[in-house]
C-alpha cells in the first residue's frame, strides 16, 4: 500500500492506455511488463514531486506537521491545498500530459 502515492489501479489504467497507443512489437512479455512497471513508478513519482514541489518550504513544513499529527481527514488536506493556492487538478493534469508526451515521444520507452 505504501509503495505508491496514487492508487496503482489508476496508474495502471493510464500507463496501459499509453502503451496501447504506442505498440512495442519487438518486445517480449517480460520486457513489456518491466517497461510497464517502470512507467507506473515513474508516473507516481512525477505526480508526487509535482504536487509537493509546488509547495514552498514553509508550506511543506506545515503539511509535515499535519502528517506527523496523524490527521487523516481528507477535508483537512483539501483545505490545506486550497489555502496554499495549489490547484491539484491542474498540476496532476499537466504532469500526466507531460508524461504522455514524453512516453509517446520515445523517451520513456
Amino acid at each position: 500500500m505504501d509503495e505508491y502515492l496514487i492508487d496503482r489501479e489508476i496508474l495502471e489504467q493510464f500507463v496501459d492506455e499509453l502503451m496501447k497507443q504506442k505498440p512495442l512489437p519487438a518486445s517480449t512479455a517480460e520486457e513489456l511488463n518491466t517497461l510497464r512497471e517502470k512507467n507506473i513508478k515513474a508516473l507516481d513519482d512525477q505526480i508526487a514531486k509535482a504536487v509537493f514541489g509546488s509547495l514552498t518550504a514553509p508550506q511543506l513544513e506545515e503539511i509535515n506537521k499535519i502528517l506527523d499529527s496523524g490527521e487523516e481527514k481528507p477535508e483537512v488536506f483539501q483545505e490545506f491545498f486550497q489555502n496554499a493556492g495549489v490547484d491539484l487538478q491542474k498540476i496532476t493534469s499537466e504532469t500526466m500530459t507531460k508524461f504522455s508526451e514524453q512516453f509517446l515521444g520515445g523517451q520513456n520507452a
Partner: peptide, 14 residues
C-alpha cells in the same frame, strides 16, 4: 486522508 485527496484528483483528471 492525503492519499484519498490525491487519488480522487487523479481519478477526476483521468
Amino acid at each position: 486522508g492525503l492519499k484519498g485527496v490525491l487519488i480522487a484528483t487523479v481519478s477526476l483528471v483521468l
